[in-house]
């Protein structure tokens, strides 16, 4: 058994050390919000945060995760689904089929965590997730809107 800190809870999982974190999350922790798309870190559907940084979990072996590292999945991004990225996505009706969106949202949230007001060029560089429905136009708009929501919330004294 291995102990992981997932979405703020210490969770025991039973998997071989070379099991990708993606499958540990989906099949051991029962968190199916994180998706399988390619298995070779090309599409980003499996993006989660480890200590706030975006990680493609389909190629991240369980053995590489330390118990004290904080894993955040789409289910744990916010308690009530109101992270600024989620708010922006809802306002713009960004998702289409929705399958890539947990990864897209996690990648966008990580970008904003490191860079509260990303430019279009920053977005081009940092958001490399594939979306076959082609939601990119509203993803870009959504990241800019989330940055504004974040600023507005911060100025009101809310937690970031």
């Amino acid at each position: 058994m291995v102990k992981l800190t997932i979405n703020g809870k210490v969770t025991e999982v039973d998997a071989e050390g070379d099991t990708p974190l993606l499958w540990v999350l989906r099949e051991q922790a029962g968190l199916t919000g994180t998706k399988y798309g390619c298995g070779i870190a090309q599409c980003g559907s499996c993006t989660v945060h480890i200590d706030g940084e975006a990680v493609r979990s389909c190629v991240y072996p369980l053995a590489a995760v330390q118990e004290n590292q904080k894993i955040t999945t789409i289910e744990g991004l916010s308690a009530t689904g109101d992270h600024p990225v989620q708010q922006a996505w809802a306002q713009l009706d960004t998702p289409q089929c929705g399958y890539c969106q947990p990864g897209m949202i996690m990648a966008s949230a990580a970008l904003l965590g490191n860079n509260p007001e990303p430019t279009d060029a920053d977005i081009d560089k940092q958001i490399t997730n594939i979306c076959r429905c082609g939601t990119f136009q509203r993803v870009r708009e959504g990241i800019h809107l989330a940055a504004k929501i974040n600023t507005a919330q911060s100025s009101k004294g809310s937690a970031k």
Binding site: L31, T32, G33, T34, K35, Y36, T73, I74, E75, L77, G81, Q86, W89, A90, D93, T94, P95, G98, Y99, Q101, P102, I105
Partner: peptide, 14 residues
Amino acid sequence: DTLEKLTGKQVFGS
């Protein structure tokens, strides 16, 4: 059908 797509709650076939 947007909100469940933002939180990982949407159940896909897989």
